[in-house]
Structure formats: C-alpha cells, structure tokens
Design a protein around this nucleic acid. Sequence first.
DNA 1: TGTGTCCATATTTGGGGAGT
DNA 2: ACTCCCCAAATATGGACACA
Lengths: 208, 208
Amino acid sequence: MGKRRIAIEKIEKRESRNVTFCKRRQGLFKKASTLCTLCNANIGIIVFSPSAKNNVYTFGNPSVDKLIDRFYNNQNNNSVVAVEEESSENERGFLWWDNIDFSNFDSMEKLKRLETDLMDVKQKVQNQLEKLINGSSSSPPPSPEERVKEEEEESECWLWPSVEDMDALLNNFDYGEQPTSLCKEENQQDSYDDQELFFDINQYFNYS
Amino acid sequence: MGKRRIAIEKIEKRESRNVTFCKRRQGLFKKASTLCTLCNANIGIIVFSPSAKNNVYTFGNPSVDKLIDRFYNNQNNNSVVAVEEESSENERGFLWWDNIDFSNFDSMEKLKRLETDLMDVKQKVQNQLEKLINGSSSSPPPSPEERVKEEEEESECWLWPSVEDMDALLNNFDYGEQPTSLCKEENQQDSYDDQELFFDINQYFNYS
DNA sequence: TGTGTCCATATTTGGGGAGT
DNA sequence: ACTCCCCAAATATGGACACA
C-alpha cells in the first residue's frame, strides 16, 4: 500500500519497523473505528508494541474492559443456553426475551425506560393489527379462515392483558386504584418515586 | 474504498450493513495479521457482530486469552495508550423494537405470537418492578465488582451493557455461537453454525 | 523514538449478482 | 446470514524528510 510493495514478513530494519508499526497501528484502529460506526458493532483491540518499552495500545468501543467482560460472559451464556436448548421440547424454541436478565433493571429509571419502549411496540403492534383487519390487500392476504379468526381475536382484545389479568396484576402489587386514592397506609413506606412510577406503568399497560 | 464513497455513519440498510460488516471485519483481521507479521507485534481483537446471531469473532496472536491475561498483568507496570471510542449512539441507543418491521407480521398467527411473547416480557417487567419496590435489598445483591460495573454501564445503554440495537439485543440470546476459536495471524474460519430456533423469530424482524 | 506530511502506488471495499 | 467474484473508486501506507 505504499510506493512500493513490501513482502509480508518481519521488517528487519528497526527504524522502518517502528515507523510502519506506528502507521499501521493507527490504520488498524481507524478501521476498527469505522467498522464500529458503520455496522454498529463492538470492537476491542489490544496491541502490544514490539518496541523496547513494550507499550500497550488498546482500542475499545466500548472500553476494552467491558468487552473482555462481555466476551467471557457470553461464553458462559452460550454454554448455558446451549444446554438448555437440548431440553427444549416446545416447538417455539427460545426467543431472546426468554433470556432477558431482568435483574439488570435495578432501578425505576431503567424499568421506566423499558416500559416506555414497550409501549411503543404495543402501539406498533396495534397498528399492524389494524392493517391486517382493514383490507390487508397489500401484504399477503390472509386466508378466509384467518380472516374469521382475526375477527374473533379482535373482539377478545388479545393484544394486551385481559381485564382480569390487569386486575390480577394490580392486585399483585397491592396497588388498586391508586390514581385516585390518596394513599395506602400499608404502602406508605414505599418511596414516592415508586408510587409515581407505579402509576405510570399501570397506565401504560392498561387497555387503551 | 469502494465504488462509491459512503458516509461514516451507521448503515441503515440491514443487508448492506451485514455485507459491509463481513468485508470490513475480514479486512480488519487481515490488517491485524500483517501488522503482527511485519512488526512482530502481538494483537488481540474481539468483535461482536451486530447480527442477530451475535457471533463473536476474535483474532489473536497469540491467543486472545493469553493477550487478555497479559493485558491485565501489564497494566500496572506499563504505560497503556488507550483509544476509547465513544459510543456514537444517543444515550438511549437503538433498541430492537426500533427496527421491527411490522409489515412482516402479515398474519394474525404471527402477530399473535409476538403479542404472547411481549406479554411475557411485560410480566417479567412487572415482577422486576415488584422486586424493586419490595426492598431492593431482597433482590440478589450484586457483588461489589458488579456493582461498580453496573454504575459504569448506566451511562450507556441501560438495557444491556454495550448493546445498542436490536441486533445487539438479540445477542442476549446469544446462543449457539461457538466459543470463538482463536486465530493465528490468519482469519479464523468463521463458523457457520447456528440454530433454527432463532430463525423463526428473526424472520419476523427486519432491521432495515 | 514516535508522529506528521507528501506523493505515488498498493490495497481495500461498495455495488451488483450469485452460491452455500 | 455470510462469502465470493468482478471492477472501479476510495483509502492506506512505503519511502524520504521534518519536528518534538
């Protein structure tokens, strides 16, 4: 890639070698960087310099530490999941959300965001539902059977929990009609934060 | 470096993104390889694929494990020049649901399935909520190390450490991907693996 | 020793199409 | 989903020299 072609073998001249090392290392990192950006990938690189100082150069998106961490964690997950996979009898198979580690949502803040996003999905699903129901001539037209089925489904309002389910959920949280009630003696101890968020969440998951 | 110049920003078209990822990943490893040879350096690279399969590709001369090991042992004694790429995404990052192509759910059958799964997720969210509310101390207390990690992670995509879009999210599913093999100075043979299990659900998603 | 600059040439890679 | 091929256009980088 230069004015001259060079054999891909160790560069003997110390001087040239260092210069080349410097240039190519930069090039490597740049490549990694653009790859990260273009494909939204995560890359970690560790380079041990051949120089006397033996400096270590690293590149990380995100940090190398996190990537190494994830690297090892993934290996674990893989084996775990792989094992489970064999014992999976249902045709459904595992879907990613089966493996969400909810303990990661260790703050209302995080949960709140998840919930907000789910709301978004919900809306989209409903839109799609509408499309399917209202002349779905654009997409693969459902068979007459399916059509019937759709209508049935619709009346059931299958998308989100049934009223019963909703009640169960609310009860579960011992939360009741919070929106209007002023307070719950029992739960007073709970932080106000929780209460508010609670409210929000219920509202989102509620039927609309 | 192609027939056309492309902006260095996330490639939106999934298809192109994957192709580019494939090409550039190979290019990156090749660069690393020649650099190793030319300058007698030691390089380790970990690349998390943005694809649904979440393959993890690694390059190591010598093995990635040894390099990581050496990396940590050397950190204290040698200067480390690090280049940390800042995440280009907004703080929220892309989440899988941002890229769902709902037009793929062209039948009640499929939509129904999505819905069922989402319900599951919802339930889990609620459970987590419950845990948070009922004394956060009850939930499995993270180790000190993990705690620190969590805090660090928080500034980034809260959902998953270093996971920013659907592809990445699917990662958590992460399975079947053979523990990366190490490759010496040459690109490793990418494993073709992978299960059908995911295929099913993935086909519904179109991260364009 | 480690980088930056210039210039000409060696490589890489986007597009498009195809195969596994 | 991931590779490979072809080809042209976009980059990367030797070699030489300069700077800190």
